Amino acid sequence: MENWKIKLISYFSIVALTYFLQKKFKIFQILFQILILPFSIFFVVFAIGIPFLILQMHLLIYFALCFFIPSVFFQLYEYLQYPPINIQLKVYVILSFSVICSVVFQKQIKYIVHTFSPARLKTSEKLRPYKIGELSDYLLSESNIKFLVFIIYFVIIVCVNFYNFQNLSYYDSEKIDKAVLQSFVTYIAFDRIISNLKQVEFKPSEMVKKMKNSIFNKMEQLDNINK
């Protein structure tokens, strides 16, 4: 890379010269296209990579918001000087609460991500052809979020077990490893509750209505007896 400044200036000078010459002489058009080939390749790669980069950014922001909620809670807990809790419980609560929030508040968190997205989904004309909003809606759907959470836990559990079977600790101590594993067990139990809840026909409002009717029927029966 010796004399790179001179080479770079020479390159741009030749590109500029061929740009003006190719307007008058067609033979220079091929030479001009060859000279700007690196820029053409970069532009194509950049154009293709934009939606992937933005979607990855949305995904990172989504999970960052999920972890932000319990983290703020613990900061407030420590600020109020409540009895201290150990790191294992802290890891367990933050992980469990974060993944549960990612499912329970999926629509709200996705709305925040889209509202404050650096891609400016509603105003950016340059990104409008990509339809980033639709792609992000699909990526951050409830089913996909659940799937990603299971993948993340799967990778973590494989790593933790690999170290534990070697009598080692993946994190600072085996207690933290256990906290991570227990948070996954908690999430599985939560996921099963949600899945079964969708199949259950029980509705609190309907139950209250039936109880009111039963009570009124009993009161009406007592009134008839007294008469």
Rank of each mutant, 00 (worst) to 15 (best):
L31R: 03
K26C: 01
F42E: 05
S71H: 01
F46Q: 03
V93W: 15
F39Y: 02
F63K: 03
F105Q: 10
F20G: 06
I112T: 08
F42V: 07
I27C: 01
Q106N: 15
E78C: 02
F12H: 08
Y11P: 02
V99G: 10
L55D: 08
A47P: 00
L17H: 11
F73A: 07
Q108S: 13
V91E: 08
F43I: 05
L55C: 00
V99C: 13
I61G: 02
N86A: 09
I112V: 15
F68M: 01
H58K: 04
F42W: 12
S71G: 05
Y62M: 03
I36T: 05
V93Q: 07
K23H: 13
L53S: 12
L80V: 11
I100A: 10
I27Y: 09
F12G: 01
F43K: 04
I85D: 08
F39D: 03
I41V: 05
L55G: 03
I9H: 06
I30M: 08
L17A: 15
P83D: 11
A47W: 09
F28V: 07
F25D: 05
Y92V: 02
F39V: 01
K110F: 10
G49D: 12
L35H: 07
V45A: 06
L59K: 05
F25C: 04
A16Q: 10
I30K: 03
P51R: 02
F43C: 08
S98M: 12
I100K: 13
I34D: 06
M57T: 08
V113F: 11
Q88M: 11
Q108N: 11
P83F: 13
F63W: 11
S40T: 01
I9Y: 07
I112K: 02
V93P: 14
P38R: 00
I100N: 10
I14A: 12
F43M: 06
H58Y: 10
F52Q: 05
F105I: 06
C101E: 07
P84H: 12
L17R: 14
Y82I: 13
F25W: 09
I50D: 07
F73D: 06
K23L: 08
K90D: 09
K24Q: 09
A47K: 05
A64N: 04
V72M: 09
F97L: 14
I61D: 05
Y82L: 15
F42G: 02
P70R: 06
V45F: 10
H58V: 06
F63G: 00
I30C: 06
I48S: 01
L95Q: 11
F39T: 02
Y77G: 04
V93A: 06
I48L: 08
Y111T: 15
F12S: 10
C66W: 15
Q22M: 14
I48F: 04
I27V: 09
F52T: 03
N86K: 05
L35P: 02
L55Y: 10
I85V: 15
A16H: 09
K107Q: 13
I87W: 12
F46L: 07
K23A: 10
K110W: 10
L17I: 14
Q75D: 12
I14S: 10
F25H: 00
F73L: 14
F43P: 00
F63I: 04
F68Y: 11
Y111N: 11
